[in-house]
């Protein structure tokens, strides 16, 4: 079976590709190496994959490639390409977010019409919820994003749902809750905190660190993708959380314990668009396709720390 992964050189895209290759699938991966972080990091993410004959890579942009021709030859889609990040979505570069997160998704969905696609798994985000009063957050919780990024991810989700209803494209959207682990994007909190601890540098923490997050280990997020592809219900959205709610300060203590070093923290004002708390109700994914996260925060951070400690040169 041949599958298309967009954004294949990114943190989650490359991890999905690695898993699917291990499972025996053939992959066509697309990435345009958007400059949200250095190309060499993304190239490193797919370095091993490129050695595999079942992995075919195209450097290109889904907005300009003749994507219909590619979709003729695949059985499923994992749409991971997007401009990520809540904070950077404020300001003059918002057009890049709409271009890639909204237009890119629409182009891919439009090209998927009348193709024999078994499933179109669309990467969404917990940022579609915004600040929620009642936890845990279920898929029926109102979607009121508080960042421009969240608005674009919600638009992508809505497009996926529209193309399911209008053209029977079997879409599923997965709302990722703060995914972390080896190869995490360099602008994300755990990557920055671990790097600062290793190098003995000061690290800025947005807010007082008492904000809570449902952190999802990358292997669990990948497993959710594969299971949703195989058994998810068409036209549905699913939360992908890690199964526990942890304060950022607690996570920092864990990293300190793992590293044996004290973090040099500098607390600064929180950013617009950052939700105060997230905690996913993952019962829907569990019921429909057996999603059950396995890696707890301690084990997950240990794996990320060890990986980053061994691979820090890639990011410098």
């Amino acid at each position: 079976m041949r599958l298309l992964i967009t954004g294949v050189s990114g943190f989650i895209g490359s991890s999905i590709a690695k898993k699917l290759i291990q499972e025996g699938y053939e992959i066509i991966g697309i990435d345009s190496f958007l400059d949200n972080y250095p190309k060499k990091i993304k190239e490193n993410n797919i370095r091993e994959l490129l050695k595999n004959k079942r992995f075919n890579f195209i450097e290109g942009n889904i907005l300009s490639l003749n994507i219909g021709k590619i979709l003729d030859q695949v059985d499923g889609v994992f749409h991971q390409s997007a401009i990520p990040g809540v904070r950077a979505s404020w300001g003059i570069n918002f057009n890049q977010y709409t271009e890639h997160n909204v237009n890119g998704t629409q182009v891919l969905l439009e090209a998927s019409k009348n193709k024999e696609i078994r499933k179109f798994v669309n990467a969404s985000s917990s940022s579609v919820y915004g600040d929620v009063n009642e936890l845990p957050i279920s898929e029926t919780t109102p979607t009121l994003p508080i960042s421009p990024y969240g608005v674009t991810k919600l638009a992508g989700e809505n497009l996926a749902n529209l193309y399911f209803k209008g053209y029977c494209i079997p879409t599923i959207s997965l709302r990722y809750f703060t995914v972390y682990g080896p190869r995490q994007r360099p602008d994300m909190a755990f990557h920055k905190i671990i790097t600062a601890i290793i190098l003995g540098r000061e690290i800025e923490i947005y807010g007082n660190g008492e904000q809570t997050r449902d952190f999802t280990f990358i292997d669990d997020a990948v497993e959710a993708n594969l299971k949703a592809f195989l058994n998810g219900k068409d036209g549905e959205v699913y939360n992908v959380g890690g199964g526990s709610r942890v304060k950022l300060n607690q996570a920092i203590r864990i990293i300190e314990e793992i590293s044996g070093k004290k973090a040099k923290l500098k607390y600064v004002d929180s950013h617009k668009g950052d939700a105060k708390h997230t905690y996913a109700d993952i019962s829907k994914g569990k019921k429909d396709f057996g999603y059950s996260p396995e890696i707890d925060i301690y084990e997950g951070l240990k794996r990320q720390f060890e990986w980053l400690n061994d691979n820090l040169d890639i990011y410098r």
């Binding site: 066509i28 004959k53 075919n56 290109g60 300009s64 490639l65 003749n66 021709k69 590619i70 030859q73």
Partner: peptide
């Protein structure tokens, strides 16, 4: 370069 990959590529400008 993989032949199967060549079959599915097109010019990004004209799609030809």
């Amino acid at each position: 370069i993989d032949e199967k990959l060549l079959e599915i590529l097109a010019c990004p400008k004209c799609k030809g």
